[in-house]
Amino acid sequence: MISVGLLLLVWELCATYSGIKPTILPAPSRVFEQAMLNREALVDNAIPTIRATLLGFACSLSAAFALSMLVDFFLPLRRALFPVFIVSQTLPLVAIAPLVVLWFGFGLAPKIMLVALVTFFPMLVALVEGYEATEAEIGQMLRAMGAGRWRIFVLARLPSALPYFFAGLRISITYAVVGAIFAEYAGAAKGLGIYMLNAKNNFRPDLVLAAVGVSAALTLVLFGLTVLLQRLAMPWERAGKESAGKGPWR
C-alpha cells in the first residue's frame, strides 16, 4: 500500500512540475477527477467486461476440471493432449484476438473464448499436478480398505489437489480481466477494451488510465475473492498454522 502511494506521489509531482502536457502524461489527480466525471460511461463499459470475464472464467474452470479428471483416469491422454495445450499458450494474443473476433463476431462468444484461452492452462496444470501429489500411503491404505479408483479420487486425490488448484486459480484470475480487455480491444460494441481504444484515439490518456484503474480494481477484487474462497474451502490450513507452535513432527 505504501509503495503504491509513493509511486502515485512521484507521478503526481512529475506531471505537475516537469512541464509535460496533461494530454501526454496526466497527473493521477486528473485521472481520478476525469474518472469521476465519466463514471457513468466507465461503469457502463465495465459491465460487459465483467460479464465476459466471469463467463469465460467459468467455462475455463469447468473445462480444466473435466479435462484434469479425464487425464487423471487415462494417463495416455495426458501425453496426447498436453502438447496441444502448451502450444495454445504460445499463441500471441495480439494476433489471435482479431482473428477470433473475425471468426465469431463482435458478440460475447469471442471474449469468452479468449478469456478461457489465457486462464485454462494454469488451472489444468495445477489440478493434474495436485492429483499426483496425493500421499502414496493414503492411496495404498484406501485400496486396502477396498476403495475403487473413483472412491480414491473423490476421497483422496481431489482434496489433495486443492492447495495446487487455488495456486493455479490465483494465477489464472489475474489473466482473466486482461484477456477480456484484449478481446474487446480487437472489436466490441461496449467494454473497457473498446473504451480504452476510443479514449486513446481521442487523445485522452487520462481516460485510458481511468479505465486501466477500473480493470486493476476488478482484478484485485477477483483475486481477493479467490483468497476468501480458499479460506472457506480449506479450513484445515489455518487450523494447522495456528497450532504450529504445538510441535510439528516429521
Binding site: E135, M141, A144, M145, P159
Partner: peptide, 18 residues
C-alpha cells in the same frame, strides 16, 4: 478378496489433513 481380512496401518499416519 484382500480388503476383507486386513486393516492396514501404513508407515506414516496417513491421516487426511482435510
Amino acid at each position: 478378496d484382500h480388503g476383507r481380512h486386513f486393516a492396514f496401518m501404513p508407515q506414516c499416519d496417513a491421516l487426511m489433513p482435510w
